[in-house]
Design a protein around this nucleic acid. Structure first.
Lengths: 228, 228
DNA sequence: CCTTGTGAATATGTTCACAGCA
DNA sequence: TGCTGTGAACATATTCACAAGG
């Protein structure tokens, strides 16, 4: 398979993942979706001081087959050594680079309710590549109050702040009735990816990536398999 | 396909989804996972006062093909009318029954930090089949303080409270270093399904269903497709 | 007409199993 | 020996396309 990141034994290069003639990445999205999980576990192993690991050990930790892990990684290069396995810090570094979290991305948060506060005060973002850089809310009462380390700005300030900070990612943590309007305004302001906590499917242009978090979806999935 | 819920024109029956000889549901898990999304959208349509809808309309709202929706629903029965589509309140009712959210499930919450408060104060659970019935935290400072409508109990009270309330579902909203221990204790106390907000893959027996919410996983998925 | 429900065809994803190298 | 990387085999999921019913 073509080496599309960097050779395990060469120095860093700024190569980029190959993209086919359709402009679409040739790597299945479902594979990309597992990479952050691998990275999360590898960084845990790293903190535990482990120098090397194997696809088998990783698989056991994750409840995934070792073959799947090897094939997923093989899309991006050859990171392991036969007979030995993978060097943990090295693989962390490579995955961080592939996912582009070798630097910190500023994120816009809309909604300064309980959920907004929980997100803004969460300490787990920084060392995984993200920081809440700006917070917006339409409630004048909340204006200028502190949420995490940021201060609440009015919705009207969104376009300018987003452009100044170069934010491409936003999180929507507003009530469901306001979510579509917020999304429209974020996209208008230049946001490219949205993580939506409101329980609604947003209507957005095809070039905007939207992902969703809704605990009720998970709970309802669970109850199907429960009795009573 | 066999009718496994109830005929659209008969009165309610308490039939249950068929299960094959392996003890596993013959319906793909990925299909079950989409049902809550269909239900969420149908209830929105219902609130808008729509009487009927079609697989095509639903598909457009959800960004899913109409064929997929029809095939998914066909696993459970025949809910539509040719030439007309689906009766919205009726399909809501049927999906709620299939997912067993035609009544309210009590959920245990562990962790009374910012996230715990956000969950406990979220008003969107009740009318979708869930309620936060008990809250636990290991911090003695938080003991007996109010979180949503519940009061924080000590971890030691978990087994008794869970058994008394008949809780089968728990949410873990504690720091990552405490999550595995909390999971062990919940399972010990009889919990069957866990929604874990801590960024770690839990080690649990095979008969326990665990799902995860970690915003960073979504953000890292997004950054793969972004530039810079 | 319009829309469902569904086999058949296609597309996608996962696992197997082994050559090859440390 | 122990482990990776990978074609080939298999398994699963999605879409097509159409008969049949209102």
């Amino acid at each position: 398979m073509a080496m599309i990141v960097s050779d395990p034994h060469s120095v860093d290069q700024d190569e980029v993942v190959t993209v086919n003639t359709n402009g679409k990445s040739e790597i299945p999205d479902i594979v990309i979706g597992r990479l952050p999980i691998y990275l999360r576990t590898l960084e845990l192993l790293n903190r535990e001081g482990r120098e090397v690991t194997s696809s088998q050990e990783l698989g056991e930790r994750l409840g995934i087959s070792s073959a799947q892990i090897r094939k997923d990684l093989s899309h991006f290069g050859e990171f392991g050594k036969q007979g030995t396995g993978y060097n943990v810090p090295y693989l962390c570094e490579q995955l961080a680079k592939i996912l582009k979290v070798d630097h910190v991305w500023p994120i816009v948060l809309v909604g300064a309710g309980y959920l907004g506060h929980a997100l803004a005060n969460y300490s787990g973002f920084e060392n995984r590549g993200f920081t809440i850089a700006a917070v917006f809310d339409s409630d004048p009462q909340k204006l200028n109050t502190k949420v995490g380390t940021a201060r609440v700005q009015p919705m009207e300030a969104m376009p300018e702040t987003i452009r100044e900070m170069g934010c491409q990612i936003a999180t929507i943590a507003v009530p469901v009735h306001a979510a579509q309007n917020v999304a429209d305004r974020l996209i208008e302001a230049g946001i490219k990816s949205i993580l939506c906590y409101a329980p609604i499917t947003l209507h957005t242009p095809k070039h905007i990536r939207v992902e969703y978090i809704d605990p009720v979806i998970h709970f309802q999935h669970m109850t199907f398999y429960l009795n009573r």
